[in-house]
Nucleic acid binder design. Structure first.
Lengths: 212, 212
DNA sequence: TTAGTGTGACTGAGCGCTCGTTCATAATTG
DNA sequence: CAATTATGAACGAGCGCTCAGTCACACTAA
């Protein structure tokens, strides 16, 4: 949480009142997300963002120094939302033999729901200035780290067979990416599987390695 | 092969000599690929593409009707190259208990080598006009289809346990995407695993589901 | 052979326009 | 009043793309 707050504070602003800044930036993000999803970052103009927010262009530039700033705010917000959901899910299923399956189910459901947002991050991270791209990638690592911790805890409790550290890490990455796979191959997968089919099959796949 | 040739023929050109068109377009692709990889499609200008090819801008537009045409040519060329390699690999290991592991090894090695190209397709496919985006996605499906066929053949020969059709399909997607995962998480994974480590671990993972 | 003519690849200055960004000014707040 | 927040016309760099013109060469006619 402190990370996210600090990162927002890093974007300079002309406006003095910090609460106003936070509120306005939330408005900007809410307006920009659907635009970026629909047209992509490059084909969305700052004027469109301003209009969708209900701002004049001048006002937009009081809360943001560049168009890239807006993209960064958007990426941060998306990651925060995903991380919040995943954290919730992981804590709801702390123990037991079926905890992993339940966690996967919850995480994949989040991916299903946030389809467009996850796609957006895959496609536009490269448009960020290096300094912020790094931040966004750190968010991605932290998210996978949540699964690493969860897996380690289950193994410690004897709910999963023992694994080497590097295996745990890779399984965590696989879970993360197979969730994303539903978003970026959905145009094809959804012809053959419902999201529930998909979760069931992939859960079997993941438990396969773990000797389940 | 007919597909690829036909698709190129679809791009109109002012130039009459078809061999010249083919040669010039190959030059354009070769020049554009590193530019797109380095700066992305939107931040590369048509003038830069022309200069890198050794053409005047005017000449570039004799062989291509728009900047998006160039992107499409690039995506086609990349897919052709990947498909060629994968086809080779699949035919080299037609049978036997270890055929799947060998195929995975070859495919992941191709992904490793074509890292930047695969990333490019992930990031820029959305910048294509719908008609061509569809074509590029069809290429993606065809590639996964190669794995479906290979898996089915191995199962028919008794080299792999029987699976439902939908399981085969999903395993094929997983193989495809776990190969891609090395490219778009390499910035992190390469800190912990060499490509060989990665292949070994993931092969175990994939064989897990198949009861290997 | 050579002058004449046609063809098609190639050139690059420049057109028309959009975009991100700024700033003089106005409105609002306390 | 002063300080802060909001406006939107104006700027100008830079973009994709065009098109009037050049040039090398092949073919024809005398």
């Amino acid at each position: 949480m402190p990370t996210a707050t600090a990162s927002k504070r890093d974007i300079e602003t002309q406006v003095k009142n910090p609460e106003l800044v936070a509120r306005r930036r939330r408005q900007i993000v809410d307006a920009a997300v659907p635009l970026f999803i629909e047209k992509g970052f490059h084909k969305t103009t700052t004027r469109q963002i301003a209009a969708a927010t209900g701002f004049s262009i001048g006002l937009l530039y009081e809360y943001v120094r560049s168009k890239e700033d807006v993209l960064y705010l958007v990426c941060e917000a998306i990651h925060q939302e995903v991380e919040r959901c995943v954290n919730d899910a992981l804590q709801r299923h702390e123990r037991g033999r079926d905890a992993l399956a339940a966690m996967i189910h919850e995480y994949f459901t989040v991916c299903h729901r946030m389809n467009d947002h996850i796609l957006l991050i895959y496609q536009e991270t490269q448009s960020l200035p290096p300094h912020w791209r790094k931040r966004v990638l750190e968010n991605e690592v932290r998210l996978t780290g949540l699964f690493v911790n969860a897996l380690a805890r289950l193994i410690a409790h004897g709910d999963l067979p023992k694994l080497t550290e590097e295996s745990i890490e890779l399984v965590a990455h696989n879970i993360t990416v197979l969730g994303h796979m539903w978003t970026f191959r959905r145009w094809f997968l959804a012809r053959h599987y419902s999201i529930e089919d998909y979760i069931t099959l992939q859960t079997g796949f993941i438990l396969g390695l773990l000797g389940g």
